[in-house]
Design a protein around this nucleic acid. Sequence first.
DNA 1: AGAAAAAAGTGATAAATATCACACAACATG
DNA 2: CATGTTGTGTGATATTTATCACTTTTTTCT
Lengths: 230, 230
Amino acid sequence: MIGDTIFKPINVIDLIRQYGERLTFSKNEYIYLPDDKENTIFVVDSGEVFISKMQEEGKELILKLLGRDSIFGATRLYVKSNEYGTYAKAKSDTVIKSLSWTQFNAYLDEPQIKNEMIQFIEIESERYATKMRDMLMHGKNGALAGTLIRLSNSYGEQTADGIFIKTKLTNQELANMCGTTREGINRALNILKEESLISIENKFIIIHDLSSLRRIIRCERCSIEFCQVY
Amino acid sequence: MIGDTIFKPINVIDLIRQYGERLTFSKNEYIYLPDDKENTIFVVDSGEVFISKMQEEGKELILKLLGRDSIFGATRLYVKSNEYGTYAKAKSDTVIKSLSWTQFNAYLDEPQIKNEMIQFIEIESERYATKMRDMLMHGKNGALAGTLIRLSNSYGEQTADGIFIKTKLTNQELANMCGTTREGINRALNILKEESLISIENKFIIIHDLSSLRRIIRCERCSIEFCQVY
DNA sequence: AGAAAAAAGTGATAAATATCACACAACATG
DNA sequence: CATGTTGTGTGATATTTATCACTTTTTTCT
C-alpha cells in the first residue's frame, strides 16, 4: 500500500486462521459457486482470489481481487440469502483457511469480532458506491483508470520508477474488472503507455503518473480506504 | 411493492420519528452536501429524496431514490469518514425527521436497533453489487432496464394494465440514475414503448412486460430484496 | 527444446452512445 | 391567459465501444 494504513479485521483473520481448515486451490479452480449454500467464511493465506458476479455466455464481472488476509464468503451477520450470489475463483495457486459459519457464529458474541465484521461490511458498501461512479461516469477509459488506481492502492509499491503493481493481470482479467472487452483494454493500455502514464515491464504494470489517471475520472478527494480492489 | 415483503428497520424508523426533529425541504433543495460533517441520521416521512454521488460539470450519478420510511445520512456504525461523500436532494417537497448521531448512538446498545442497522448495511452492500453488474454488463439499455426493474420493485403497483410506477421521473433523472444522457434515455424509452414493453401515461411509467426487461440484463433469479432503487 | 496453448496486438467494420442544435410541448405562475 | 421555464422529441454528426478475423508473441508443458 501507498501511505495510509487501511482497515484490517485482524481478530477475525486470526480466528479463522486458528480454527479454520486449510484448503488449497490451483489456478483457475473455483472455491465456491453462486448457488452454493452460503455457509463458510474464508481468509486468504497466500495466492489471489477473484470474486465475480456470474454472467452466462462466458462473460463475468470481477468485483474484487483478494490477496493475503482478505476475508470472503459468508461475511454477512444477518442477511442469509442462502446462496453466495457471487463466485470465487483462484487467480493463482492459492492457500486459504475456511471456517463453517456455524463455528464462526459462536464467536460473534465477542464484541471485537462482531465490530470488525460490521466495519468490514460498512467499508465494502462504501467501496461499491465509489466504484459505481468511477465505472459509470467516464466511459471505459474511466473504468480502466479507476481500476488501475484501485490496483495501485491495493497492490502498489512505490519505487523510483513509479508505482509497481505487484500482481500480474491479463488483458482479459482487466476487461472483466472493467466490464469491457479484451481488445478494448489492450488498445486503452497501449494509449496509456504512449502517453507515459504507465508502462508494462515483464507483464507487471507500473504507474508513472497517478494524477493524470485520477484526472480521467475527476477524482481529487480520493479516499484510499474506499478505493481498493478488494 | 410486488409480492414479497422486504426488510424494513422498523425500530430504527420509530426511534428517529419519535425523538427526531421535523424538517421540511422544498423540491430540489439539498438536505446535505458531500462535505458536510456526517453527524445526522434521517428518515423520510413524506416526499422523495435522491442520494447522489457528486460530479462537477453538472453531472451526477443518482445512487438511490428514497421514499417514506427510508433511512439515510449517517447510517454507519463505525466507519466515520467525517463527510457524507454523497449528497441528498429533495426530489419533491419533502418532510423528514432527523436525529443527531450522538443521540442515536445512545440507542445502539439496544440489540434490536443495532441489529437492524447491521442488516440495513448488509442489504445496501448486496444491492450495490447486484446493481454494478446490471449497469456495467449490458450497455446503456441494460442500465435502463435494470433501473426500470428496480423502480417496479420499489415503487411499482400491479394494475390490470401492468405495473404502475408511482413516481414521476424526468428523462434527465432517469439518465442520472443510469449514468447516461437525457437524449439517450429519451430514445431508449421510445423504443421500449414501440415494443410495448412499457407505456407512459400522464408522465407515469407503466411496465407491461417485465420478463422482456429482465431478458435485456439476463436476470432470471432476480432477488426482490436486492433489486431496489433505495 | 519444441509443440501446443494462451495471451497480446491490430486492422476493418459495425453498433452503440454522446453531442449539438434546435423545434415543440407542457407546466407553473404572476 | 400570456409568458417564462422546464421538459421532451429528433435529426445530423462525432466519438466511443464492440465485434470479427486474423497474426504474432509469450507462456506452458512434456
